[in-house]
Amino acid sequence: MARFLVDVPADDVRKLDEIAKREGKSRAAVLREAVSNYLEESRKEGFEKYFGLWERYGSTVDGLEYERELRAEWPDVGEIASLKKKRSAA
């Protein structure tokens, strides 16, 4: 196991100590867990990385409903096809 020296703001150290006390762990154990979680999250790619993104940041919007609302603004495919036929006939 490697050691490293890092400067951490006093307020963050206080919060770390509160977490460590609440969970019955040492500050070092909490930091090791935090680094491990950070590295795990940074490895995620594509779908895994973005799945649940809205909820993670407090959005209560239903993504599927939002997508349906956006698509409702699109013209009907049949309308587009008939416009193309009219243009090509002219």
Rank of each mutant, 00 (worst) to 15 (best):
D12S: 12
E79S: 12
F51K: 13
V35P: 04
E41W: 10
D76S: 05
I80W: 08
K25W: 02
D62P: 04
F47M: 05
E23S: 00
G58L: 01
L70R: 10
E45G: 13
G58D: 08
R56W: 03
L5Q: 13
K86S: 07
S36V: 07
F4E: 04
E79D: 14
A10Q: 06
P9G: 06
S82E: 15
V13I: 12
T60V: 03
A2S: 13
A20G: 01
S26T: 15
A10I: 08
A10T: 14
E40W: 04
W54A: 13
R22C: 02
K84D: 08
A29R: 03
A29P: 00
R22W: 03
K21I: 04
R14G: 06
L31H: 05
G78E: 05
E40N: 10
S42T: 05
G52C: 02
S36T: 10
F4S: 11
D17W: 02
K44N: 04
R71V: 11
K84E: 15
L16F: 10
P9V: 01
R43L: 07
E45Q: 14
Y57V: 00
D17K: 11
R32S: 09
S36L: 14
L5M: 11
R68I: 13
S59M: 05
F4L: 15
A28C: 06
L31E: 03
K25C: 00
A2F: 15
R22L: 07
E73P: 00
V6H: 11
V13R: 10
D11K: 01
A81G: 03
E41P: 02
G63T: 09
V8I: 14
E33Q: 15
K44G: 03
P9I: 02
D12M: 14
L5N: 14
D12I: 09
R56G: 11
K44A: 07
Y57T: 00
M1F: 14
K21W: 01
A72S: 15
G46T: 05
L16H: 04
S26N: 02
G78F: 01
